[in-house]
Design a protein around this nucleic acid. Structure first.
Lengths: 208, 208
DNA sequence: CAAAATTAATCAAACGATTGATTAACTTCC
DNA sequence: GGAAGTTAATCAATCGTTTGATTAATTTTG
C-alpha cells in the first residue's frame, strides 16, 4: 500500500507557484489552488493567512534559494574575464532551470502594485548586479577591460538571458524548440553561454 | 463655458490602457475603467462587447501603429552596419516612447492564456526580428560582418532595450532617474543607442 | 498505563463584497 | 420620430475570507 501522506502546506505552495506562473497572481483563484493541491480552501488561510501570504512565501523561499546558490567568485587567481564568464554561466543555468518562476518574477516586477514584493525582487536583483559591476569595474581599473558603460553591459547580459526565456520560442530559432524538453534546454543553455562569453570577450578586451 | 464634449469611446480606450499597464488585465475592473474614463459601465460593453474586447482593441491599434511606423531601411547606398544602427535607433526610440505599453505587452506575452493576443504580439515581434536577421545575415554573407549566432545577437539587442525599460530604475544607474521625466528619458535613450551601436560595431566588425 | 485535556489539522458551508455583463428606461441629436 | 448614445439598477457568478464543527495527534495528569 502506497503511503499517501503528503504535506498539505507544501502541496499548496507547489500548486500555487504552478498556477501563478501559468495564469498570474490575479488570474489564479484560491479555489483553483485548493483544487490543484488537494487541500481544503481554508488551509490556504490557515497556513499563510491570505492568498498574498502564499505568494510572499513562494517568493521568499525562491529568493533565499537563489541567494544561497550564489557563490563567491572572487578567487584572486583568476582574471576579471574569467570571473565574468563564470558569472554568466551560473546566471544562465540558474535562470534557464527556473524559466516559469523567472517569467512570473518579471511579470510581478512590471506591476506597480504590491510594493513589498517589488522591493524584495529589486534587492535580490541588485545584489547580482553589484557583483557583476564590481568585476567589470575592476577589469577596467587594472587595464584589462576597455572603458565601457558598465551598467549598460550588465543590462545586455541580463537582458539577453531574459529575452531568451520570455520570447516566443519559434521566434528565436528558425526551427522549433521547447525549453521544457531537456535536450533543447541544454542546447539553448550552451548557445546562450557561448554567445555571451564571446560577446563580452570581444567587446571588453578588443583593443581599438 | 468650456465644451466638455468628449469621445466616450476614446476615453474608455485611454483609461483602460492606462489601468491595464498599471495593474494588469485581471487586476483592472470594468468599474475602474468606467470611473477613470468618466463613462458609464454599460458603455464598455456597448462599444467593445466585453472587457476583453477593449483589450483586443487596444492591442490592435497599437500594433497597427507600430507596423505603419516601421520604415523601409533597405536603401542600397548604406552599409549593413549603418542599417543595423538605424534599426537600433528606431527601436530604442519607439520602445522608450511607449514604456508602459511595452511592459504590458511583455506581461501578456508571458501568460499562456489568451492565445489570440499571444499570436498577435508574436507576429508583430517576429516581423521586426526578420528585418534585423536579414540585415545581419547579409552583412555576414558579403564579408563585412563576422560569423556570429544571428538569433542570439538579436536577443541581445532586443533584450538590452527591454531590460532598460523593465528593470527597476535605481538598479540601472547609481543615481536615480525617471523614465517619465523627459530629460531623463532623453539621456537614457541616447545612452542605450550609443551602447548598442558601439557593441554591435565592435562585435560584428572586429577582425580576430 | 490509561483517562483527560490540549493542540493541530481538516472540512463543508456560508459570509459579504466584487466581478463582468445585461436590462430597460431615458436623452440627445439628426 | 427613430436611431444612437447614455444612464441607474440589477443580474448571476465568482472572489477571498471566515466560520463552527470534527477528526487526529499530542501532551498532561492521576
Amino acid at each position: 500500500m502506497k503511503t499517501e501522506k503528503v504535506d498539505k502546506r507544501q502541496a499548496i505552495l507547489e500548486a500555487a507557484e504552478k498556477l501563478f506562473c501559468e495564469t498570474g497572481y490575479e488570474g489564479t483563484s484560491t479555489r483553483q489552488i485548493a483544487k490543484e493541491s488537494g487541500a481544503n480552501m481554508a488551509m490556504i488561510n490557515y497556513y499563510f493567512g491570505s492568498k498574498e501570504g502564499v505568494f510572499v512565501e513562494i517568493m521568499n523561499e525562491r529568493i533565499a534559494g537563489f541567494a544561497s546558490q550564489l557563490k563567491i567568485i572572487n578567487e584572486d587567481k583568476i582574471s576579471a574575464l574569467e570571473k565574468l564568464h563564470r558569472v554568466i554561466e551560473g546566471y544562465v543555468n540558474r535562470i534557464l532551470n527556473n524559466t516559469a518562476f523567472h517569467k512570473m518574477m518579471h511579470r510581478e516586477l512590471s506591476l506597480t502594485q504590491r510594493p513589498e514584493m517589488y522591493d524584495k525582487i529589486k534587492d535580490a536583483m541588485s545584489h547580482n548586479m553589484q557583483l557583476i559591476d564590481r568585476i567589470i569595474t575592476d577589469g577596467i581599473e587594472d587595464g584589462t577591460f576597455n572603458k565601457v558603460d558598465v551598467r549598460m553591459v550588465i543590462a545586455t547580459i541580463m537582458g539577453t538571458i531574459t529575452n531568451i526565456v520570455i520570447s516566443p520560442h519559434k521566434v528565436i530559432s528558425c526551427s522549433n524548440f521547447d525549453l521544457n524538453n531537456p535536450k533543447d534546454k541544454k542546447m539553448i543553455k550552451e548557445r546562450t553561454i557561448a554567445h555571451l562569453q564571446d560577446l563580452t570577450t570581444v567587446y571588453l578586451t578588443t583593443k581599438k
